[in-house]
Simulated scan of single mutants.
Amino acid sequence: MPDTPLLSVRDVAKSFTLHLRGGLELPVVANVAFELGAGECAVLGGPSGIGKSSILRMVYGNYAVDRGAILVRQGGEAADLASGDPRLVMRLRFTTIGYVSQFLRAVPRVPALDVVAEPLLQRGLGQDEARRRAAALLHRLRLPEALFGLPPATFSGGEKQRVNIARGFVTDHPILLLDEPTASLDAENRDTVAGMIEEKLARGTAILGIFHDEVVRARVATRIIDVAAFSARRDAA
Rank of each mutant, 00 (worst) to 15 (best):
A136N: 11
L113I: 15
P174N: 01
G209P: 03
L150V: 14
R190I: 02
E180N: 03
A232P: 11
I175A: 00
E214D: 08
A30G: 13
L56H: 00
V193R: 00
D85T: 07
Y60G: 13
T95W: 08
P152G: 00
Q161H: 00
H173G: 03
R123D: 07
R21K: 12
A79R: 13
H212K: 04
D179K: 00
L20W: 15
L18C: 01
L201P: 09
R167A: 14
I55D: 07
L24H: 14
E198R: 15
R131N: 06
R87L: 12
R142E: 14
G195R: 02
H173E: 05
I70L: 02
A166Y: 01
D3R: 07
E199R: 10
G195N: 02
L178G: 00
R219I: 11
P47G: 14
Y63Q: 11
E188Y: 06
D80N: 10
R21F: 13
P2K: 10
M58K: 01
L143M: 10
T171N: 09
R131A: 05
P86T: 12
G209E: 06
L143Q: 08
Y99C: 07
S83W: 06
E25F: 05
F94G: 06
P47D: 15
N164G: 03
V32R: 03
G75Q: 07
R167F: 08
I50H: 10
L88K: 00
E214H: 08
P144M: 07
V89H: 09
Q74R: 15
S48Y: 09
I224M: 14
S54I: 11
A206Q: 09
A135R: 05
V193K: 03
F155N: 10
I97H: 07
D172G: 11
R234Q: 14
G51D: 12
A236F: 11
V115W: 10
D235L: 14
L104C: 02
A13Y: 10
N189Y: 06
A135N: 02
R203N: 06
I207S: 02
R123M: 08
T154L: 15
D114L: 14
L18M: 11
E35F: 04
H173F: 04
A221V: 08
S83E: 10
Q102P: 06
I225E: 05
C41W: 10
V215C: 01
L18Y: 01
G158M: 12
A136E: 07
Q127Y: 13
V29L: 11
A202P: 03
I55H: 08
T192K: 01
R219L: 10
E40Q: 02
L6G: 03
G49C: 09
N164R: 03
E199P: 04
L36I: 08
A130G: 13
V12T: 10
I175F: 02
E199C: 06
G46Y: 01
P181D: 08
L147S: 06
R109D: 14
K200C: 01
R133Y: 12
E25L: 11
E180A: 02
S231I: 07
Y60C: 10
A146Q: 15
D186Y: 13
F34N: 02
N31F: 00
V43R: 10
L185S: 02
E214T: 12
L208Y: 07
V9K: 05
G124H: 03
K52C: 13
D128A: 15
A117F: 05
D3N: 12
P174I: 04
R217Q: 07
A130H: 08
D226S: 01
L113D: 04
